[in-house]
Amino acid sequence: MTRYGSVLDLIGNTPVIDTSALSPKPNVKIWTKLEGRNPAGSVKDRVAYSLITTAEADGRLIPGKPGQTLIEPSSGNTGIALAMVCRMRGYHLKVVLPSNVSIERRQLLEVWGAEIIESPGSEGSNGAVRRAQQLAKDNPDWVFLYQYANPANPLAHYTTTGPEIFKDVPEITHFVAGLGTSGTLMGVGKYLKEQSPDVQVWAIEPPSGEMVDGLRSLEDGYIPPIFTDNNGAELLDRKVVVRPKESLEWTRRMSEIGLFVGISSGAIMAGAVKCALTIPDDQEAHIVTIACDDGWKYLSTGAWTDDLDEVVERAKRIIYF
């Protein structure tokens, strides 16, 4: 089909590409699902659409009714995706955004009319979540969809991303994805293990706890409720940290095979390569990874063009993921 009634009809059904040229082992194929092909540019389009349509179905949001306001913490992509859907539906969106995200993320939010509320950059996403929770409490008439706790988040991946992956790569042996809200890993992981219980699910995370220097004690820590609600510790088989330098190196390696993807995609590819190295030589494996978005939003960071060590230093101050 090449004619569509709405931009929202373009969400999902993203292509999977063979990226085995980056695999360290000939017996291991690596497939990458290109989520940057979604209309607002990231995997979060699926989540935003699911959050909004679920809230409309249960009456928390009423399409066409004026004066409805939503509040959401986001380091970027969820906010951008929600901004697009809200603009189309006529809702006013306030996004709590850490002050140290790339400039393109702020600009995209403004493209779709979202209002930005800054949270301290030193507190990272943690600070944005806390601020949004407080604002939602203080303003009970605002709708707080709270992507970190809303079952509609993993459900979007259970009903769309997971089935798409299994249809396109039925031989899948490993699924490797980024851990933020944990929505992708919980939704896709659950679906894949139901279809094929031997599929291994690997989570990749940035060393966030090292970058957040606004943390006063461990008690300020945070685990997304959807991770706990979905027994994340049981669902995952491995959880691996990928550091900024490796993330940037692999983001560049991906551009060498023609893929211009965001920096979290490089981190996830680095994780997929680590995963490949654990597979015995006599065993065929098919790893599926997610490229969460394209590279456009990160051009201002110099990720592809500046000296690698300089970009790594900058990565300690700017939220790239």
């Binding site: 970190y148 933020g180 090292e210 945070y222 979290s264 993921f321």
Partner: peptide
């Protein structure tokens, strides 16, 4: 061995 506090991380 690296110890890190669990915080709301990236990709969100």
């Amino acid at each position: 061995v690296t110890l890190l506090p669990a915080v709301a991380g990236g990709f969100a």
